[in-house]
Design a protein around this nucleic acid. Structure first.
Length: 417
DNA sequence: AACCACAACAACCGCCTAGCT
DNA sequence: GAGCTAGGCGGTTGTTGTGGT
């Protein structure tokens, strides 16, 4: 449709912002909020277009952004997320609190991409450029797994984005209170654009991924693995070990299957386990919910688990994998205890299998592991036989290898390439 | 000191989409 | 439903800084 003419006006300044301009913009937003970006420049006495002001604010002046060198953890997160999501910088940025999409994008283009290329890894596919190297060790299948996960996560993110928009619309008051907490200066309306999403909402797949990697099967793996499905944030946060290093749900209070109130951050998980027709507080109606889940099932390759309306109804949500079925009630709060109770038919080990199967298996691939042994520093693995846990181990090795390469850019350090 | 090449990052451009009329 | 606008997003460009010759 029609493009905004705001930047076509003659006489508007372009190029680097001066400290004076920054000051004007800051002062105005702190006092009045940004309101309409188009109207802002005139009101603030700036010879800039609204778009330029918005970018300057969101990418540079916003007080809640972190600047400076990226930490190793951040680098790894970016690489992981890029492998999952591609160049969806805004989606990646939601998982990196206080970093802007622009900053992440620039960092990727100027640092990480080059580093991966240097290591012989295709920065687009995150696979070694020489596929022949993969032919005998199962890595290509791991990459296929990753691709499936990416598709799955991508579809999930799209649904979450829509829900976030709905939440945003319906929780202006919540936003304002949040903004007032985050800002040092009082602001009549939230000038924030990104923080609406709050801290990283959920690294669903990654948490599952990491959980499978790092936690013993019979300990914290229920939470970590279950986080990988779209029951997600709630389960992950609720069941998450207090010692988790991820800690993305640390501020969330209590996730209910319906009628979530105004408690801070719960808005981020409102789509979880939504049940019938709660128009008050329930952010998503059943129809929308089903649409979102249908989309997962309809995702392009047909490799994805078929989470569709057939497994979601008003009373429960069911997951069916090749290994085991699981049904969770919709009409109760999903707490750690209740979940354990409801899933008692599945032992922790089977639970892991169930969800790793959902995550990793697909209709066509069957046995995914031909044998591991490609990791660089964790010792070798026995040959796999299609066991989900072993599949995870292979993927762990794959990622460890990537990270080792990225962090120790010496090809000789890795047994992988 | 001057020039050049490259890296890093801020900012812009153009497209897309949601929301409004 | 069509037209329009605001805002968001990702790709690209422009500017500045830095190191080498």
């Amino acid at each position: 449709m029609g493009r905004s003419p705001c930047c076509d006006k003659v006489g508007l300044k372009k190029g680097p912002w001066t400290p004076e301009e920054d000051q004007k913009l800051l002062a105005y937003i702190e006092e009045y909020g940004h309101g309409s970006w188009r109207a802002l420049p005139a009101k603030a006495g700036l010879q800039r277009c609204g778009k330029s002001c918005r970018l300057r604010w969101t990418n540079y002046l916003r007080p809640d952004i972190k600047r400076g060198k990226f930490t190793l953890q951040e680098e790894q997160t970016i690489i992981q997320l890029h492998a999952l999501l591609g160049n969806r910088w805004s989606a990646i940025a939601t998982h990196l609190p206080k970093r802007t999409d622009n900053e992440i994008k620039n960092y990727w283009n100027t640092h990480l991409k080059k580093r991966l290329v240097k290591m012989g890894i295709d920065p687009v596919t995150h696979k070694p450029k020489n596929d022949a190297l993969l032919s005998n060790d199962g890595q290509s299948k791991n990459a296929a797994n990753l691709s499936h996960m990416a598709q799955w996560e991508s579809a999930r993110l799209e649904a979450e984005a829509r829900l976030a928009r709905q939440s945003k619309l319906r929780s202006n008051s919540f936003q304002n209170s949040l903004a007032s907490q985050e800002f040092t200066a009082p602001s009549p309306s939230s000038p924030l654009s990104k923080p609406v999403m709050g801290p990283a909402r959920c690294l669903n797949v990654l948490k599952a991924w990491n959980g499978v990697w790092t936690k013993p099967i019979n300990e914290g793996s229920i939470a970590s693995v279950s986080a990988g499905i779209s029951v997600t944030g709630a389960l992950a946060r609720d069941l998450e070990s207090p010692t988790s290093t991820l800690g993305y749900f640390e501020n969330a209070q209590h996730i209910s299957s319906s009628g979530i109130g105004a408690s801070s951050n719960t808005v981020l998980y409102e789509f979880v386990g939504n049940s019938s027709g709660s128009s008050e507080g329930g952010i998503m109606n059943n129809e929308e919910s089903e649409e979102d889940w249908k989309e997962f099932g309809n995702s392009s390759t047909g490799h994805l688990p078929q989470y569709n309306k057939d497994v979601i109804n008003e009373n429960s949500i069911s997951f069916t994998s090749g290994l085991q079925d699981l049904t969770l009630p919709m009409d109760t709060t999903w707490t750690a205890e209740s979940l354990r109770s409801n899933t008692e038919q599945i032992s922790p080990a089977n639970f892991v299998e169930t969800f790793t199967d959902l995550l990793l298996s697909n209709s066509g691939d069957g046995d995914l592991s031909e044998g591991g042994g490609t990791e660089s520093d964790n010792g070798g693995e026995g040959s796999g036989s299609g066991n989900a846990s072993e599949n995870c181990e292979d993927n762990k090795n794959y990622w460890n290898s990537i990270f080792n390469l990225v962090n120790n850019p010496s090809p000789s350090d890795s047994a992988m390439f």
